[in-house]
């Protein structure tokens, strides 16, 4: 089809319903979500928890540095951490750090242990089990602090 050259294509462009958009729609609209397995989802969780921990650290450095500005302000901020909402935030923080730390060990083993890549799936489930065990120990105690006033 020689008449369907690039030039003919370009000429047919203005006949379209709309003028050429300034901000074009995404070139590759939604395909299906790639169905990765344990490895991919562990990476997704690792990234989400990692970014969350980063934002926590940012705030944490700011609140700790307040003590040099004014101890009063520091105390006020630390007291606000004792509210139930911040208590739930702390729970989420431990959830995130727990996974990130354990999966981090898994990633280190994949890179530095010669059999790491072979056993990555088993290691992922070990990470999940240890993580859940940690949370089973921590979350009830934390909730007693927040809601029980103990």
């Amino acid at each position: 089809m020689p008449e369907k050259s690039a030039g003919a294509l370009a000429a047919s462009r203005p006949e379209k319903k709309y003028p050429l958009p300034k901000i074009s729609a995404p070139r590759a609209p939604r395909g299906t979500l790639y169905r990765g397995r344990e490895g991919m989802w562990s990476w997704v969780l690792h990234r989400i928890t990692g970014v969350s921990i980063f934002f926590f650290l940012l705030v944490h450095i700011l609140d700790t540095s307040l003590v040099r500005v004014s101890p009063g302000a520091y105390n006020a901020v630390i007291n606000s951490y004792k509210t139930p909402i911040m208590g739930l935030g702390e729970t989420a923080l431990v959830v995130a750090i727990g996974f990130h730390a354990l999966n981090g060990l898994r990633v280190i083993l994949i890179d530095f242990w010669s059999l790491g890549a072979k056993h990555q799936r088993l290691m992922f489930w070990i990470v999940i089990v240890v993580w859940v065990l940690l949370l089973v120990g921590f979350v009830p105690r934390q909730f007693m602090h927040i809601f029980g006033g103990a």
Partner: peptide, 9 residues
């Protein structure tokens, strides 16, 4: 490489 193992799979 972020070791997602999608390639191996």
């Amino acid at each position: 490489c972020r070791t997602t193992f999608n390639c191996t799979e």
